[in-house]
């Protein structure tokens, strides 16, 4: 059936089955491929997007569960004040290696900083432990979150 969605501030329609995960609606139906498939069982965080500002795993969130929530993906992150700062820090420190997980990392980090502008190391670990980086850029992810928070390491 047709679902009315609000993605990155735009009204969009997706005619898909009710059980289709948001991830595949974004990627295949709406053409927003920045959100990544990594595991399909909410283990890796590569598919992290925001629903009304809260981080969710799009790979296990069926489209019928979205309702009227405002969805923000990596393609819309720059429109968030915190998101733009996080992207800037990611660029300045050149966090990425392959880069595949980084959209999810950035969305998780943005949600963290929106709620907790001055996270401790333990806060960062707790908020980011759901996002796997197979290239293991964790040292820089930690540093970039601190930079985005204005706490230079």
């Amino acid at each position: 059936m047709a679902y009315e969605l609000n993605v990155n501030g735009k009204a969009m329609t997706a005619d898909v089955d009710a059980d289709t995960p948001l991830l595949w609606v974004l990627r295949d139906t709406l053409g927003l491929v920045g959100t990544k498939y990594g595991c399909g069982i909410a283990q890796c965080g590569a598919c992290t997007v925001h629903a009304d500002g809260a981080p969710i795993r799009a790979c296990v969130t069926p489209i019928e569960a979205i309702g009227g929530a405002q969805i923000t993906t990596i393609e819309g992150a720059a429109s968030l004040e915190v998101g733009a700062r996080v992207q800037q820090a990611w660029s300045e420190l050149d966090v990425a290696q392959c880069g595949y997980c980084q959209p999810g990392q950035i969305m998780s980090a943005t949600a963290l900083l929106a709620e907790n502008p001055a996270p401790s190391d333990a806060d960062i670990d707790a908020a980011m432990a759901g996002n796997i980086c197979r290239c293991a850029t964790y040292v820089r992810i930690r540093a970039a979150i601190k930079r985005a928070a204005g706490q230079e390491a």
Binding site: S91, Q102, P103
Partner: peptide, 14 residues
């Protein structure tokens, strides 16, 4: 920095 960094952090198709 990597030449693709801007595309990576904004989720462009790569």
């Amino acid at each position: 920095p990597q030449v693709d960094t801007a595309a990576i952090v904004t989720g462009q198709p790569l």
